[in-house]
Structures are given as C-alpha cells and as structure tokens.
Nucleic acid binder design. Structure first.
Lengths: 252, 252
DNA sequence: CGTTCTTTTGATGATGCTCAACTGGGGTGG
DNA sequence: CCACCCCAGTTGAGCATCATCAAAAGAACG
C-alpha cells in the first residue's frame, strides 16, 4: 500500500520524445499497429506524441483523471486497480509489453481505475482524438483496435469465471498458466519468469489473501509442479498446472 | 439447466423483418444510434437486416458460433454465460433493452459465450461488416460504438470488484441497486420490478449459491429493506441498500 | 549490521457451501 | 374441480475453505 511518489528530477527527460518508431518496435506484431503496411505505420507513428518512461511504483493515470490518451506498453509491466467507495481495492489486471491501457476511459472521458508501473517501464502515448482521426482512412487500424477492445472484454470475462467459480488452487494455477502463455507469445520462456508483482497484488487480483498465495506456492512447490525462489518462478510441470486450472485435476 | 429448444414453427415468421425503425424505437437514446441525425439513423436502419424474435430459454448464439452480427436488444432480457473446460458455467451478465450483445466475439470472429433469452425477446441484428463500412462516414456512430464497448469493459471491472472483494450481502445489494438504476434510465420504476432471472442465475452471477440468495432475500425482507413475492421485488429502502452495496453499512 | 518490509507458517474461526428436508405455486390430467 | 406432480424456492444443520490473527524467518536497504 506504500505508493512511492518519487519521480522527481527525471520527469522532464522522461517525457522527452524518443526516436523509436512502431516499425522498429519488437511489439508491433502484437500491439496496435498489427497488420499495418509501412506507410500506414508511419502515419500512426506521427500521431504518437512521445514515448514516456514511468518509474516503478508511480501512477500512469489515476481514477478520475481526464482521458486524453491510450497507452501502449513498450517495456515493463503495469497493474490496474479499481477502488470502491469504502476504500478497498481490486486489482483488475496485470499488463505487459504490447498491451493497451486506458480503454475503459473512453465511455466517460475519465479514467475508471489507477494504472501503476510494477517496474521501470515505457509507454507510447496515443492521443485518442488523433487516433480517431486516423480511423476513417485506415480500416485495418480500426479493425485491430476493435479486436483489442474485444479481447479486453474477453479477458475480463475469464477473470469473472475465475473469481466466481474456481477454488483457490485452481485460480492460482490459472494465473500462472496465463502468465506463461503471454510470455510465450512475446518470445520469452513460458516456463521461467519473474513475477513482477507482490504476493499481495496476486492475492488481491485472485480474490485471495497474501497468506493463501504463500501457502499455494508452497503446496505447488511441494508437489513438484513449480520451483520458486522469491519472485523467480519455474513451471516444472505446466501440463499438470493446466489441468488444475481447467478443474480436471484437483490436488486433494 | 433445462434448455427448451422448442421454437419450431415460428422460426420463419420470427425472422421476418419487422418494419420498426431506429428513430421509432424507444431505446434510440441509449442504444447504438445515440446522437445520430435523422439521415444517419436512416443509413443505420438500412444495414440492420431484420428484427428477430427470440423465444424464452432459447439461444441467441452459442460459444463457438461464427461471429457475423452484433445484437441490439429491442425488448426483453438476456443472460450471457461462459463455460469452462470442466463444464461449470459462470453467468457473465444480464442484458436488457438498449444494450448490445456479441462484442466479445470481435476479437476472434467466434462467440465466446452463450446468450440466452430470459423471456420472449426481440433483437436487432446488426451485420458487423456492414456496420464497419458505415464507420468511415459516420464518426458519431463510431464514437458511440467505442463508448459502448468501453462501457462493457467498465461494467465487467465492477463485477470483478464485486466478486473479488465483497461479502455476500454486499454483492446482493449491489446487484439490486444496479438493476434499479438501469430500469430507472429506461423510464421504469427504480423501486418496483420483476426479476427476470432465477435465483440460481443470480447466485451464479454473484459467485454465490441459490441457498445464499434465498437467505439474503429473507434477511433483507426481515430488515424491511425490500418486499419480495416470487420474482416481484420492491426496494423499500434503496438508500440503505446503496450503503450496504458501498460497504459503508453492514447488516451484522 | 540493524531496520524495515515481505513472505512464510501455524492456530483459530467465520462466512458461505453442501446436503437434506420441506413449502408453495402453477400446470396437467383424471 | 380437485388431486397430483414438478420445479423453484426456502429453511435448517453441519462442515470446508479460506480469512484472520499472530509470530517468526528471510530478503532488501541504507
């Protein structure tokens, strides 16, 4: 709960435009420009104002902030969370490179959640009104934008399934499996990765307590399904984890 | 779980185009054509192939069905649910007139959930590819479409908050309050309405059992917050219900 | 090397589930 | 018209899962 607001002297330099272009970005096969031809990608490049650094534990935006930009993650990891009237939070997602942040703000022109960097990260700032002005001439871009919004809807539906129907160990197995496949798509190891989030954040996301997460880690480790050392995780038996996630196998 | 597949002889007639137009529809202030001028609304009308009746307990679409249409609800109520590999379901939402169904299918061109009518209903079939062809010339339509997708994302986020953080009574109060405000927007009573869904469906949606729902109804009734007779509900003390939903008040 | 924060582990308890029996309304058929 | 059935819903008793509380151990950091 200790959100460091430290970002002091780097602010100006961090907002300076970096010369990186979509076509040179390793995420362009996943991110917004997917499917675009060279010249269309250039047009998109031109409206992307700046690449912005976001230091670990700092906010990219907060609930209530006016909505002007979508953000594409170039590098790093984020979490988003909602806050309800009585003050407790719900982590609604963990986002990684190539994913889009801020789509929930379109409906009301204000952000509905907080987005916070889990590590030092970089995002591309996409002014939404300028993006809209491109849609008329670039149906491919529009199409892919719709796919990304739709994908977000689908993702949230699976979280609803997870929170509404699954037991603790099933949720956690699903969580690990999900991370695994997302890293795999990005060309990283699907079996070895660092958890960028604390146990508390994982627990919050999965509707469980930090203690439960800790116990689940120990249990899975004892079963020989994973190896854990601090934040470093190795999925020793991904197949079994998938079965547990699917509910076809219980660890009694 | 008994899904009647009866719809036999009415099929052909039910799919016949009805002459109802967006401009004449009571939902056009809420639904897709929101904000459109007369002539733009006409263009939209022209691509909406048919108004289709969907009998109670029948599917509008199923998981895996190819995606060709979005559906705007003209009349009636629907539920959507997901099914996971081990066969159990999660109701992901209850939809009413003016709301859009099928947006989760855009990303993969296949439906990700089942949509089922809770009562005899009517939908407008919106061929998505034809809708896309309108976007170029009708920025207002595109804008509102984005708002509706974004709204769906926000809605699901609040369900995540509900499932992840709230106690049973809080969830149920939030559920009633949500229905109340949606009916209010549509010009119906915000305090008197029929539940179109079974206790089981409510429970599934809220991550609770049918027995819990029943007990909560009794408890709220005993407290004098609501009146219940079968599916008919009256919110006697909506203010308190909102407090309970917000978590500022517990019923110890 | 001490301080602080995160994580682990244990003991206890409450919330909501499971199982079971019962109630009541609506439809059907004798 | 009444008896019956069937299904949705209600209510109760016992129990499991996971939360809560507490304490100790381990990592991170100056």
């Amino acid at each position: 709960m200790n959100i460091a607001i430290a970002q002091a002297p780097s602010t100006t330099s961090s907002r300076a435009a970096m010369s990186t272009r979509c076509s040179a970005c390793s995420m362009h096969q996943i991110c917004l420009p997917t499917g675009l031809k060279e010249d269309d990608m250039d047009k998109l490049d031109q409206i992307i104002g700046r690449r912005r650094k976001v230091a670990r534990d700092t906010h990219l935006y907060r609930v209530g902030d006016p909505f002007t930009n979508l953000y594409a993650i170039r590098l790093g990891h984020f979490k988003t969370h909602q806050v309800n009237p009585s003050g407790d939070q719900q982590v609604t997602g963990f986002q990684m490179a190539g994913e889009l942040l801020g789509m929930d703000a379109i409906s009301t022109d204000r952000h509905h959640c907080d987005a916070i960097a889990l590590e030092d990260s970089e995002v591309c700032e996409i002014p939404f009104s300028r993006l809209e002005s491109l849609f008329g001439d670039m149906p491919v871009l529009l199409r892919h934008f719709h796919r990304m919004m739709s994908q977000e809807i689908t993702r949230e539906q699976s979280v609803m399934l997870l929170l509404g129907n699954m037991r603790a160990e099933q949720r956690f197995a699903a969580f690990l499996t999900n991370l695994s496949s997302r890293y795999s798509v990005r060309g990283y190891s699907s079996t070895d990765f660092q958890l960028r989030m604390t146990r508390e954040e994982i627990g919050n996301y999965l509707g469980l307590t930090i203690e439960s997460i800790s116990r689940l880690l120990s249990k899975f480790k004892k079963r020989g399904w994973i190896k854990v050392s601090n934040r470093q995780v190795e999925l020793v038996d991904p197949a079994t984890l998938k079965e547990v996630a699917a509910g076809t196998k219980t660890c009694a």
